[in-house]
Amino acid sequence: MHGRTRKSKEELEDSEYLDNQKQEIARYRSKLDTVFQQRNEKRFTSDCLKSTSELLNLNPELNTVWNYRREILNETFKGLSKEEKQQKLNDELEYINVSIKKNIKSYWMWNHRQWILANMPSPNWNQEAKLVDLLFKLDATNFHGWDYRRYVMSKIQETEDKKVVINREFLYTKKKIDQNFANHSAWHYRSKLLPVILENEKESTLSKEVEMIIQAIYSDPDDQNAWLYFDWLIGFEVEKTTMYNLGIDIASELLELEPNSKYALLSLLKYNLALNENEPISPETKKNYLEYINRLRNIDSLRLGLYNDMEENVMNL
């Protein structure tokens, strides 16, 4: 449903194309019929497994066929030794390894992978982590991959020291961010790891994190996520005024370089408001705020409704 280029009327009416469609339909339907018939007959042989492989290669979205595949495997496990079961599941993983690269966005395939590992007598979670890392070379912000990585780590934590794993993952996200400051998936993962790390070594880690996000903001002032992350870090600080002032300084400096920096303007307004929350507002300050909002309107015409609401809030101060 996503990312496929439209064909013209001529292309669609082309006789060669139509013939081709006919053949492909026939091929697909015969494989589909075979698999569903085998399932209705409650057959669970290795031939049946092979038919599902062929069918799923054509269409990995057939959730019922993935279910059937698991039923077949569950059936073949009966009476097998641990080693034999492991071998069967290794083969299954091999099959998925090939298909997942072509269908990195298929929910069913990731589910199936999880099922394989969950049923393995001796799953190799470190190998799984390596695979995910390889997939990130194809798509560094694939959320299935990142979700799966977190799942893998939760499993590794069952046998390894939790602190060690979390610290290692924290370094891993740093590596990904060094490759690309705008990898928001890596920043997101960091936001899940940081609170755990802060439980033990707050001061130094937190200030390093602030430094790192400031670098990200400077490298792309138009990255909303970097600003959001900075804002989120404020929550961990006891002395919030220092952070508000820091935010104001960064925003002011960026605005000198780039007067139309939207998030710099938004942050300037936000942290000034936060800093002076309990103070009476002078007409001069109010005028400044309204001027920021007007500049935002000119830069960002898509969100006039937002700026109107902001203006109303400032007027009511």
Partner: peptide
């Protein structure tokens, strides 16, 4: 059309 069959599920 193949799409008809591919989206049957």
């Amino acid at each position: 059309e193949l799409e008809y069959w591919m989206t049957e599920h």
